[in-house]
């Protein structure tokens, strides 16, 4: 088990390296720079900034500086061999330094992530919780009352949920609950009343998927021999449900949760934009459009690491739930 985890974490290193490298060169080789849209800065200031951030250095030098651990940027106290004064020899992501943001003056990418991520995970966590509850309950009811009105009703609702994109659902919810009924605020993130609409918008599609998976998984399991055995032993139905069918029936849901959490992160880009939620997704879009290289790289790297960790957690969880899974 420990070996399995170590191997998976080691395997993540080349993946992250590929992601960083690909993102870095795609961002840097694209024409246009972070100062294009900021016409306010004078040419001298821009030249200063370019020197400071080493933007005119050869690309490999910028790349190695970004990667670390040696700071090759002469403008920011890099090592003496590259013309710096050696006051700040270490830098780069290997030292945990994501660098400064180009767009948000005087702020480091690390501090932007530290500020935006709690909001994103708050929104994502609530959406996930909403999706699990609103997905599993109808899914279970549909499976236990197969081919009744409950079944058809909840599955039709789920199909509808799968088909409505969050960027349609969000504005429609705002239209109804904020602009027509005046029940809930249409945007921002200032308190529980503000959380409701973004959470539903982000979570609805996952609730729909989970409902379908729960129903499918349960129906598969109730036909299996060990359930018939349990029933033959005379176990009460509730015990069969809790001890036997639920455990196997929820496996598809569990394996869905890993990729779902990942998509929850990307999905929240749009939801954060619609509801003006100050999370990480908005920074990413702004960063990509403004060529804020370091910000985009930092966010991509951060999300990728999260994703890899989440997948590992799901795999471990899977092993606890399904005795047929072994780690080797």
């Amino acid at each position: 088990m420990v070996r399995f985890m170590i191997r998976r974490l080691l395997a993540a290193i080349p993946v992250l390296w590929i992601i960083v490298t690909a993102t870095f060169f795609l961002m840097r080789l694209a024409p246009g720079g972070p100062f294009d849209k900021e016409r306010r800065v004078s040419p001298e200031v821009e030249a200063n900034l370019r020197t400071k951030y080493c933007l005119d250095c050869p690309l490999w030098q910028q790349y190695l500086t970004y990667l670390g651990p040696l700071n090759l940027n002469p403008g920011q106290g890099g090592v003496k061999a590259f013309g710096g004064d050696g006051s700040r020899p270490w830098s780069g992501i290997l030292t945990g330094d994501f660098g400064p943001s180009f767009k948000y003056a005087n702020r480091s990418v690390g501090s932007i992530i530290a500020e935006g991520f709690p909001v994103s995970i708050h929104l994502g966590g609530m959406a996930l919780l909403f999706a699990i509850i609103m997905g599993m309950v109808p899914g279970l009811v549909a499976a236990l009352r197969q081919n009744t009105a409950w079944d058809y009703g909840s599955m039709s609702a789920a199909m509808l949920g799968v088909s409505i994109p969050n960027f349609v659902l969000g504005p429609l919810l705002v239209l109804v609950f904020s602009l027509t009924l005046y029940w809930l605020p249409p945007a921002r993130w200032d308190g529980p009343r503000y959380w409701i609409l973004p959470t539903i918008t982000l979570g609805a599609i996952y609730a729909a998927y989970i409902a379908r998976l729960t129903r499918g998984g349960m129906l598969e399991v109730v036909r299996q021999d060990f359930v018939r055995t349990a029933r033959a032993k005379g176990l009460p139905e509730s015990l069969i449900l809790w001890r036997h069918t639920l455990r196997g029936g929820l496996l598809p849901v569990i394996s869905f949760l890993g990729p779902a959490t990942a998509r929850l992160l990307t999905g929240s880009i749009v939801v954060e934009k619609i509801f003006l939620v100050p999370g990480l997704g908005r920074y990413f879009i702004d960063g990509a459009i403004n060529r804020d290289y370091t910000l985009v790289l930092g966010v991509v790297l951060f999300y990728s690491s999260m994703l890899i960790m989440l997948n590992l957690v799901v795999d471990i969880l899977y092993g606890f739930l399904d005795p047929r899974v072994t780690y080797d």
Partner: peptide, 11 residues
């Protein structure tokens, strides 16, 4: 393992 939507956006 790559959050591909990000890569598409960057592309």
């Amino acid at each position: 393992a790559i959050p591909y939507m990000f890569l598409v956006i960057i592309l």
